[in-house]
Nucleic acid binder design. Sequence first.
DNA 1: GGCTTAGTTCATTTTGAATTGAACCTTGTT
DNA 2: AACAAGGTTCAATTCAAAATGAACTAAGCC
Lengths: 163, 163
Amino acid sequence: MAGEKQGLSDFESQVVDFFCDGVKLLGLPRSLGEIYGILYISQEPLALDDLVDRLGISKGSASQGLRMLRDLGAVREAGAATGRKSYYEPDVELKQLAGGFIKEQVRPHLASGDEKLKNLKNMVKEMPGDARSDFYAGRLSRLGAWTKKARVVLPLLQKFLGR
Amino acid sequence: MAGEKQGLSDFESQVVDFFCDGVKLLGLPRSLGEIYGILYISQEPLALDDLVDRLGISKGSASQGLRMLRDLGAVREAGAATGRKSYYEPDVELKQLAGGFIKEQVRPHLASGDEKLKNLKNMVKEMPGDARSDFYAGRLSRLGAWTKKARVVLPLLQKFLGR
DNA sequence: GGCTTAGTTCATTTTGAATTGAACCTTGTT
DNA sequence: AACAAGGTTCAATTCAAAATGAACTAAGCC
């Protein structure tokens, strides 16, 4: 009988479930939702061991998930260290969460997309200038407009979420 | 030697690749990126068989992918039917694409999230009214604010993308 | 120094989503 | 009606992403 959310009340496990859905929508691993969820609904910061015990996940998973959440800025070390053990608490500001996600997940994709697009445009320049290459050029320039729009919208979005 | 993008020029397969990255970011299956990509860069509409031949994917995959893209409003049947075979072309308006994605993928998630949240709030109402339940109520009401913001932002986003 | 506890890393395993392919409809053609 | 071509469905398979867990490093403590 492998442990699965043994340490969670019905209420808590439903909260965790809520966040699991949320991270799935964002394309992030389930464990991030579990970890953030349990931190979100805890009155006190939790240590890595607590996550392992209460969620029934492996130490490796907890460590990696916690790291990812810190990178995203969704979780931070809490207060003064009591001994050498670290305790973690969630950042509950939507603005920060969205900002971290955009910075870590969205922008890198956008950047590599731009790179590829630049490449494609160069390939078209090398082609003989006929109807076909004109068509290609048109489609690529439309793609460029898309990514440009994304660039403009993201800061606006962040600003809006901060209100 | 199983066929893989046999029918694609270097240029075309890089375009397809671009869209594969794109759909990955949105958490959609790779095949959608392949299919949309090849349609996007084709001067003429393509039939299901063309997708199978050029992308080297199975008929089943092509059929399912095409269906999903139609549901998303990213692809439509082109012109008058020549015989009984259908040909498909991409919708290239960012506004439409984003709208379809939001309607089909985002809103359902939001709706089920609201359902769950309502449930959780009821659970808290049943609890004895102490400091703990107050804490829970606070956290849940913050979640409510998040989803409300999402609700407000999505239409704004669509409007912006349509400009 | 030797011991213990906290945390990380990474090769292997698991699991869940995507793809396949064969059977099955449907519609048109002779 | 028999056949063919286009398309769909779904059980079985494949594959990539995530979780595991054992080995490892780092940091106190005696």
